[in-house]
Each structure stands twice: as structure tokens, then as C-alpha cells.
């Protein structure tokens, strides 16, 4: 479990993280999104007890990040922004080095690296020097390093960056597996599709502040509005929009199509279909307009930029 309360970090005069508060329950995946320099990495570093918060508290796996840094680091698996491998070492040597640091029992020190490397398709690369690994292989090895001691909490920075689609899929499935095994997972990423498909909760961080936090569905409704439906007819509309006005909020219309919003498509859509059929209109398609996390993210950031400009004008 991760609990951060009013976590703040200053570097001299620069406020990198500003009163960040969130909770991640075991068995959930939490995605932290934000522009470059927003404070994501600093937040992760504070949660790993690498950096000390200027103020605020955080507990990771039940340990206080300031008072019990060693315990925190022993309970966390971290995939850093840069994989940072030692180029002259062999894959197996590298993992053995970290296994020793984590004090893995001798049998596990031999078995676990092999099992994880096999799982991620690196079984043939155990004896290769890391300098010979491809970018994707390096990223996967760094992920293996983070999972080596089977930590209850994983903090993963861009877990699938530099990976081919097949490897990225494998890594995403592995993260889902970890979630099923009740691991607490926080990922920071710029890959919004990945965040949407993986995360149970999403936080958007900008200029050190969390400006939005919630499940994708909730964020969607809050920032992009009610579900948007698109209807295509065989004939011209000729006042059909006005006929539907009592049922739905029509937001846009063309010659033979219209778009409307409704809070409850399951209940309203059949009524819309019945009414149009009653009017003798033939429906070609009725579908929900797909809205992605990208739409939500851009809306959140744009709104916050607007608020910031207002604050600047006022001050």
C-alpha cells in the first residue's frame, strides 16, 4: 500500500512537488501522468526514500519513508526512468549482484533470475554482456531487476518505453499478473493508451500539484462530459433533432447525422431508436463516440493552464 499525504519537495527555491496526496491500495494500479518536469520522478524518488520530502508524510508497504528508509527500499521494486545498467556485466552477473544486495537466499538467488529472464524472453541472453543488449532487452532486464526480490510495492517509470509491441504486451500482461497477486503498483508514463488500459486510478500532475485524481470513467465524466452518441440516418433529419430534444441533449448535427449526450445510454438509446422508428426514419448506425484518456488528459491540462493564467492576471 502507498499513502502519500501533502508530500512537498523543494530544491532550493524551486518547488518540485506541491502537497501531493493519494493512496494506492494493494491489488490496484495507479498511473501518474503529467508533462515533462511536472514532478512525477521526484514524487517516485520520495516514495522510494531516495529523496527526503521537505514536508508531508508518506508510508510505503507500511513503512515511513523518512523514518524507515531502508525498510521502504527493501519493500519496493523500482524501475527507474533510465535503466542504468552496467554495460560490462553479463545479464546473470547483474541480477546476482542485485540478488545479493536484497539478501535473497542462495537457492532463490539462482532460481529467480532464471525464471524471470525466461518469462520475459531473455533466457538466451543470460551470458551476454549488457552492452550487447538491445534497448528493449535492457528495459526488460531493468524490470526483472525491480521484480527480483518479489516486492509488495512496485514503482515503475515508463515500463514499456523502447519496447516492441510484442514485448510491451508481455510487460503489460505481467503488470496485470502482479496486480492479481495483490501487489501495489504505481506507474508513471506518457503512454496514455497504456495508462488507460492498465490503471484503476489515474492522477494528473502539473507543476508539482495533482490537478486531477480518479478512475478513468470518473475523470472522463468530470472533464469531458456525459457519454457522446452519434446517430446516422438514411434520410435527411428535417427537424428530427427537435423531436429528440425532450430525451437527449443534441450537441451537433449534420445533413443525415446528429450527436447527442446522455447520462445513461443503456436506458435512453432504446427510447431514441423507438422514437425515430415511430417517425418512420431508418437508422444506419448508433454508436458511442470514443473518448480516450488523451482527450481527458488534454482537457485537464488545458483547464489548469487557463486557471493558471487567470491567477496570474489576478495577481
Amino acid at each position: 500500500m502507498i499513502e502519500a499525504h501533502e508530500l512537498t519537495k523543494y530544491f532550493n527555491d524551486f518547488r518540485a512537488v506541491d502537497r501531493v496526496t493519494f493512496t494506492v491500495e494493494p491489488g490496484t494500479i495507479f498511473a501518474i501522468l503529467g508533462p515533462n518536469g511536472a514532478g512525477k520522478t521526484t514524487t517516485v524518488r520520495m516514495l522510494t526514500s531516495i529523496l527526503q520530502p521537505t514536508s508531508g508524510q508518506a508510508r510505503v508497504a507500511g513503512y515511513d519513508v523518512v523514518k524507515q528508509p531502508t525498510e521502504v527500499r527493501a519493500s519496493v521494486g523500482v524501475l527507474t526512468e533510465q535503466h542504468g545498467l552496467y554495460q560490462r556485466m553479463k545479464g546473470i552477473e547483474y541480477l546476482d549482484f542485485f540478488a545479493r544486495i536484497y539478501h535473497l537466499p542462495p537457492d532463490l538467488r539462482r532460481q529467480r533470475p532464471l525464471a524471470l529472464m525466461e518469462h520475459f524472453g531473455l533466457g538466451d541472453a543470460l551470458d551476454k554482456r549488457l552492452g550487447e543488449y538491445s534497448k528493449g532487452m535492457k528495459q526488460k532486464l531493468a524490470l526483472v531487476r525491480a521484480m527480483l526480490h518479489d516486492p509488495p510495492v512496485l514503482l515503475l517509470d515508463e515500463p514499456t518505453s523502447a519496447m516492441d509491441p510484442q514485448s510491451a504486451k508481455l510487460v503489460r500482461e505481467s503488470i496485470k499478473d502482479l496486480q492479481r497477486d495483490e501487489r501495489t503498483i504505481a506507474i508513471t508514463t506518457h503512454n496514455l493508451t497504456e495508462a488507460q488500459s492498465l490503471a484503476d486510478r489515474i492522477a494528473v500532475i502539473r507543476q508539482g500539484r495533482i490537478i486531477a485524481n480518479g478512475a478513468f470513467k470518473d475523470l472522463l465524466q468530470r472533464f469531458v462530459g456525459l457519454p457522446l452518441m452519434e446517430l446516422h440516418l438514411t434520410a435527411q433529419l428535417n427537424g428530427t433533432a427537435a423531436e429528440l430534444g425532450s430525451l437527449v441533449e443534441v450537441v451537433d448535427e449534420g445533413d443525415r447525422w446528429l450527436r447527442y449526450r446522455t447520462p445513461n445510454p443503456q436506458e435512453i438509446n432504446p427510447q431514441v431508436v423507438r422514437r425515430l422508428t415511430g417517425l418512420g426514419l431508418d437508422i444506419v448506425t448508433l454508436s458511442e463516440v470514443s473518448r480516450t484518456l488523451e482527450d481527458v488528459y488534454l482537457q485537464i491540462v488545458t483547464e489548469d493552464e487557463g486557471l493558471e493564467r487567470e491567477r496570474e492576471i489576478q495577481s
Binding site: 531516495i50 519496493v76 523500482v78 542504468g84 542485485f98 536484497y102
Partner: peptide, 10 residues
């Protein structure tokens, strides 16, 4: 940039 993984250990 190989220091951070080491700093993340106990």
C-alpha cells in the same frame, strides 16, 4: 545514470 538503481536498493 546507473547510480539510481543502486540508490533504490536497501
Amino acid at each position: 545514470l546507473s547510480l539510481e538503481p543502486l540508490l533504490s536498493t536497501p
